[in-house]
């Protein structure tokens, strides 16, 4: 799997000694303290930790929605801190798919339009962008929602549209904040399988979640506490798991 890939490969996401301090003086809060994290192509990383541990801050920094107090964030080797606003917006649009916890769909646009908007901004024809949007909706099992407005959708449907929007085009990095919060367990599973498949096809993903069952779809699970990475768990390859299972033994009952 991806975590065994050579270290010299450029990570899709690289957080280099990232620190983020909110507020000033006595009200100062150290949201993140010296985080070093690389996410390579093909790798799916989940971030877990109690409320206030810095999970969401980490994600907003990775997506260029916030700036670190110290250290730097690189997406595909490009330091976000040195970019003009225009270039930063371009990187966010082209390289990064971001799934917001509260979906952030534009109410005046249909699901299809919400999804195709970033592609049209990138100069794709409306027809081609629409085609991509429909494919993304199809991938998430909701093609029938293309012409519906967010207000006409359930929370779970909006969440899946938000995920489709993050997956459209050739985004190399998908960032997701609790992307399955509004979904039942089998729909949530289907969404995670889509993210997993994207990574297996070469993209990189980082997902914040407090659900262990969802985090378990990732190659690596990192644990945050008080703004620090305190631990991580790396999964092994499934083929070797079956071998492990077969060498275990059980007792015969009476």
């Amino acid at each position: 799997m991806s975590h065994t890939q050579p270290a010299r490969q450029t990570p899709v996401l690289h957080l280099e000694n990232v620190t983020r301090v909110h507020g000033q003086g006595a009200a100062q809060v150290q949201a993140l303290r010296g985080i070093d994290l690389k996410v390579h192509p093909g790798e799916f990383v989940a971030v877990m930790g109690p409320s206030g541990s810095g999970k969401s801050t980490l994600l907003t920094l990775a997506g260029g929605l916030d700036t670190p107090t110290d250290g730097q964030v690189l997406v595909e080797g490009v330091a976000l801190g040195g970019l003009t606003r225009k270039r930063l917006a371009q990187v966010r649009r082209r390289s990064v798919g971001y799934v917001f916890q509260d979906y952030n769909l534009i109410p005046a646009l249909t699901a299809g339009e919400n999804i195709s908007l970033p592609r049209e901004l990138d100069g794709l024809s409306a027809r081609a962008a629409r085609r991509e949007a429909l494919a993304a909706l199809e991938e998430l099992g909701i093609p029938e929602l293309a012409d519906r407005f967010p207000d006409d959708m359930s929370g779970g449907q909006q969440q899946r549209v938000a995920i489709a929007r993050a997956l459209i085009g050739d985004r190399r990095l998908v960032l997701a904040d609790e992307p399955t919060g509004a979904l039942d367990s089998t729909t949530g599973e289907a969404v995670l399988a889509v993210l997993r498949a994207r990574c297996d096809a070469g993209a990189a993903a980082m997902m914040v979640t407090h659900e262990a069952r969802h985090a378990a779809w990732a190659d690596r699970v990192v644990f945050l506490r008080d703004g620090r990475m305190v631990d991580e768990s790396v999964s092994q390859d499934a083929a070797s798991l079956l071998v492990t299972a077969a060498t275990n033994s059980v007792k015969v009952d009476e």
């Binding site: 877990m48 599973e189 399988a193 997993r196 262990a212 069952r213 985090a215 378990a216 779809w217 990732a218 190659d219 699970v221 644990f223 305190v230 631990d231 991580e232 768990s233 790396v234 999964s235 092994q236 390859d237 499934a238 083929a239 798991l241 079956l242």
Partner: peptide
């Protein structure tokens, strides 16, 4: 607690990996 949690998450990742394969209809050896 943390040592156990890491261990259990690892197990959960392993089971989930197997499930991903099962859902994709991959044959088991």
């Amino acid at each position: 607690v943390q040592g156990q949690r890491r261990h259990s998450i690892k197990a959960l990742q392993d089971y989930t990996r197997l499930k991903g394969r099962a859902l994709a209809g991959e044959p088991r050896p």
